[in-house]
């Protein structure tokens, strides 16, 4: 039972071929097999949102998928955003608006909000709240995160105009 399986996954534009057990969670695959530790594991049962990644462009909880299900699919993780020297506008906004303290939830928030802002930067107050409703933060009280999303929307909309 539980025979190892070969999978091919594109992560942040790079193709990986791995042999894994079917029970390996996608979150653990990303962290332990690919050594991409930016994706965090909080509750491991789909409540906290810290492990959010983009799966074929959609935000999903990577702790609620098996790595074997990612075979042939495309994943983006927080490592696909900016670098330390050249932050993504969304990351810049989080820094400038003080949207994190301990930072454990941050990569999940970023990956939840990213597809929303890549869709539209014209967000109502309701849209702002909806963009972050699937993630828990125990430090900030959310107001600074909300402000960061708004700031990021401004940055990204002016960026797309220039």
């Amino acid at each position: 039972m539980s025979e190892a399986m070969d999978i091919t996954v594109t992560v942040n534009g790079e193709v990986f071929q791995k042999t894994i057990e079917p029970r390996l969670l996608l979150s653990d695959f990303i962290r332990h097999e690919l050594n991409l530790s930016g994706t965090h594991v909080g509750c491991e049962h789909g409540v906290c949102g810290a492990c959010t990644i983009l799966f074929d462009g959609m935000p999903v909880r990577s702790c609620l998928m098996f790595a074997v299900q990612a075979d042939g699919h495309e994943i983006r993780t927080v490592e696909d955003l900016g670098t330390m020297e050249n932050l993504h506008p969304l990351q810049e906004a989080f820094q400038e608006a003080h949207a994190l303290q301990c930072g454990f939830c941050t990569s999940g928030f970023l990956m939840s909000i990213l597809p929303v802002l890549e869709g539209t930067t014209d967000l109502s107050e309701e849209d702002l709240k909806r963009a972050m409703e699937g993630n828990l933060c125990r430090c900030t009280g959310y107001q600074h995160i909300r402000d960061a999303v708004q700031l990021a929307a401004e940055k990204m909309s002016s960026g797309s105009e220039s």
Binding site: F55, M58, P59, R61, M65, S112, R130, E133, G134
Partner: peptide, 12 residues
């Protein structure tokens, strides 16, 4: 639909 869980859950 928007009342069902969270956006990340509804993706999947």
């Amino acid at each position: 639909m928007p009342k069902i869980a969270t956006p990340q859950i509804r993706s999947r």
